[in-house]
Design a protein around this nucleic acid. Structure first.
Lengths: 323, 323
DNA sequence: TTGTAAGCGTTATCAG
DNA sequence: CTGATAACGCTTACAA
């Protein structure tokens, strides 16, 4: 690991000059530049980012906080963020929070002491109070946090409403809802839409908790269907649970979609391989990650105070699980 | 952001003393310690990791290089690595290489200039030559690189052999192989086992490329089955392709497992939701990630030169796709 | 038990 | 155009 000092000595100039050539800043004579470049090459010199960070108080690194990479919704998001951050010269550090506030706070603090340049967070526990004195840009992704924090979200209420409208159009008379975690915004919005739609149409409300998980979705569906044989439609708050529901129906010998229509939410690839293929309300997952990264980059590089809120639309993906 | 200097001034001591108390190193009088702690609290002081890194030439950070987080094999691996690294005080930085050597090298160089403490790499392009002067510990995961670099791998040859033995036991007479990328070690080993088994049993060899991908697996299977109607068994080099094959069979109206047995490799959760459920040779994915992280940690903290090679075993997961 | 001061490897200011 | 030199925030000999 050669240092700038060694390069300077070898090239017979001062470190200031070397710094000028590696940063392409300030005047430096063509001949000296050549000499320096040669020395750099000979020594295999690479500038030390840590020293640079210390001086510049920036690390060209951002933190990305998600609940759990193991949930198939997140890999695409992560990929999208990395795809825009890396070419822009930024490294992204991932952190799985398991929705645990204490972990999230600890992580943010730790990253702050590394001169992190910004955060993208998917969280429903983090509040404005926790974030107000983090002095780098933050973008809330998937779940809105506060007006004062930029966000990239999807219109969950609208999406869920349209999903249910479609089920109704296709003839469902008795729709149950497999809901996500109680305290998660996306899940609450989807549930609210379900309830509003049921009320609006004078239909009974039938909810069961599924926590966005495969196994839970399956178990809940079992109970739901055993206790209420009249149900002919099931709106799951995410695809993973919908897939669990499909398994449950199969186990109970209930035909989908003939006897029971199942609608998912998310649009993960997994939904295309189950039988019947999952009809779902698709979110622009990659696009969300991309936008979040771009927005963060803009705030970091240009205008830290330019808060923006983008609300993306979902789109119905008609496949085979709704009659 | 208070600095150590400010804390020192507030507590009426020198920075050295403050450093001593925050690092719990060297003697410091109980009273002064209290005063310092108080000052730290009052100022909300947090030690700056960048400055610390510069001096200590270590960042408490490791790099984790994988092909693509979007492939369902990796999220679990990532999760496992993070689960052991974080509690040990290490941050892990993820990087998707898309199996591109230039990207991998660029990334490694970049990380090196950040005083990264070690790497875990899943790669088939990286060779000893590229890694020999990276002066931090490296663990090769899933794919072996060189005797001089620690590795955590699975016995792919043995696993594939047993998978095929099982198919043969169950009565398959004509087994085709859906192979993974040509240059990937895991894929080559599985193919080699397939070929050896076929030769050993005097059976014809029938391979088709699937690149470990869903769509490719599907298309290849279509061709394979249309051209060779006698095939009654298909050994896919990974679950994702096996799932694609299942889709293809369904499309062609071929019943699985009655007319065609399909065997996967990996044991990802996804395989449990297809119909019929995928019979597969399961890898201890989480365990692999965990071991790699533990091994790396050992090398970083205790013995950088203690190279170890762990070969884990796969286990047959009997479900429904093999007759 | 505590303080001084010399690094760690850069960048940027200010003379020259 | 180029070179000293003072930061950046922390750790650690070495003195006291």
């Amino acid at each position: 690991m050669a240092t700038i000092k060694e390069v300077a000595k070898k090239a017979g100039v001062s470190v200031a000059t070397v710094s000028r050539v590696i940063n392409n800043k300030g005047y430096v004579h063509e001949d000296t530049r050549k000499a320096v470049d040669q020395a750099i090459k000979d020594l295999g010199y690479k500038p030390n980012s840590v020293a640079r960070s210390l001086y510049k108080k920036t690390s060209k690194t951002i933190g990305f906080l998600i609940p759990d990479i193991t949930n198939p919704f997140f890999p695409q998001l992560v990929r999208a963020v990395e795809d825009v951050m890396y070419p822009a010269g930024y490294t992204t550090i991932l952190f799985n929070s398991d929705e645990n506030l204490a972990h999230e706070l600890e992580y943010i603090e730790k990253m702050t002491s590394k001169y992190i340049d910004g955060f993208i967070v998917v969280s429903n526990t983090l509040q404005w109070e926790h974030l107000q004195d983090v002095n780098v840009p933050i973008v809330a992704l998937d779940r809105h946090i506060d007006q004062r924090i930029s966000s990239i979200t999807v219109d969950n209420y609208d999406g869920a409403k349209k999903a249910i409208e479609y089920m109704l159009d296709r003839g469902c008379k008795q729709i149950a809802h497999l809901e996500g975690p109680e305290n998660v915004l996306t899940s609450m919005e989807r549930k609210r839409a379900y309830e509003d739609m049921m009320n609006q149409h004078g239909l009974p409300i039938l909810c069961h908790q599924g926590h966005y998980e495969l196994a839970r979705g399956m178990v809940s569906t079992m109970q739901l269907l055993s206790n209420n044989p009249k149900i002919d439609g099931l709106f799951a708050a995410n695809d993973v649970m919908a897939i669990g529901a499909l398994k449950a129906a199969t186990k109970l010998g209930i035909q989908v979609p003939k006897q029971l229509s199942i609608m998912g939410f998310d649009g993960v690839e997994w939904g295309t391989t189950v039988t019947p293929e999952l009809t779902t309300m698709e979110q622009p997952i990659y696009e969300m990650g991309k936008r979040a990264a771009e927005l963060l980059l803009m705030q970091i590089q240009d205008s830290p105070n330019k808060i923006e809120h983008h609300l993306l639309k979902t789109s119905l993906k008609v496949r085979q699980s709704v009659q």
